[in-house]
């Protein structure tokens, strides 16, 4: 699949932002006043900035409000509803924290639940795609949620939780890669089932429908840099998981914390880039490609 930079930035940054909002919602840290303001500001820049970035890939962003209407059937619509509800509820909760040093915990826990709901709905947009076997797995929402909560814990300064969750996320990441590499073959979709000609013999694409590229090939059959996938996986794993974990074990200072967060973000951006670049859509079979 085509790795649109706006979508990669959105899913990584807003995942972190909603993860931080989760921790703020349950009162960890339970700071107030200016410190709380800084925490909420970081969370809103990440979550809201990610949402705005995602609007850039729309053909008609001016009709975006319509995307709130189909929550009964569409995960994308559910994500939009969840995200806005989270930002409103947590905004009210932040007012209490910042200006009144109050813990309106009902709002906080509701906002925390909605934060997780937002990350879950985001992950389900990809997980529901039976056409992309690599994504079509319960491991996808598990990885998204663990990464968001783990990254959120990193930002919220919850060192012990961050350690545990990042270890869990790294294990899920490895499991996700392992199952993803086998998913296409396991899906049972082949050129034989795509063309229905398998009962005659071995099917080979002889001639494409057109001599030039098209939307389908640009969007679904993105093959650039797949050859670097292993190197990129190593970079993603080292920066996203291993290095932040090592830094968290070192004696705490804000500079070390900041380095850990930046490493984590770059690593997860790389892993999210691979999430799209390595994903193979079954339509590629019609073109004899993967």
């Amino acid at each position: 699949m085509h790795p649109a930079p706006s979508i990669i930035a959105f899913s990584t940054l807003s995942g972190l932002g909603f993860g931080l909002l989760f921790w703020l919602g349950i009162g960890m840290p339970g700071s107030t006043g200016l410190v709380a303001f800084v925490f909420f500001a970081i969370a809103y820049v990440l979550a809201g900035g990610g949402l705005i970035a995602s609007a850039f890939h729309l053909g008609h962003p001016e009709r975006g409000l319509l995307a709130f209407t189909q929550w009964r059937s569409s995960w994308l619509s559910r994500e939009a509803v969840c995200a806005v509800a989270t930002l409103i509820i947590m905004g009210l909760y932040a007012v209490g924290r910042v200006f009144f040093a109050a813990d309106w915990f009902v709002l906080g826990w509701l906002g925390a639940a909605l934060s997780l709901g937002t990350v879950f709905t985001t992950s389900m947009i990809y997980t529901q795609m039976k056409t992309v076997p690599r994504w079509y797995s319960p491991l996808t929402p598990a990885l998204y949620l663990t990464l968001a909560i783990g990254g959120g814990a990193l930002l919220a300064g919850q060192v012990i939780w961050a350690l545990g969750l990042l270890v869990l996320a790294s294990a899920l990441q490895l499991a996700w890669w392992w199952q993803g590499d086998r998913a296409f073959a396991a899906s049972g979709t082949t050129m034989a089932t795509a063309t229905g000609l398998g009962h005659i013999g071995t099917v080979r694409a002889f001639e494409p429908p057109h001599t030039g590229p098209n939307y389908l090939l640009r969007e679904m059959v993105f093959v650039i840099a797949r050859k670097h996938a292993l190197k990129l996986r190593i970079i993603a794993f080292a920066l996203g998981y291993a290095l932040p974990l090592a830094l968290l074990l070192a004696p705490f200072s804000h500079w070390i914390g900041l380095t850990a967060v930046l490493c984590h973000i770059i690593g997860i951006l790389t892993s999210r880039w691979l999430f799209f670049a390595e994903a193979e859509h079954v339509v590629g079979l019609y073109y004899g490609k993967r």
Binding site: G59, H60, R63
Partner: peptide
Amino acid sequence: DTCIGCGLCAWACPYGAREMDAAAKV
């Protein structure tokens, strides 16, 4: 008139039956 051009339906189609028009963005 209500398509926002997100492209998700084209992802969901296994047959490549949907194409985003590069000029109209729908």
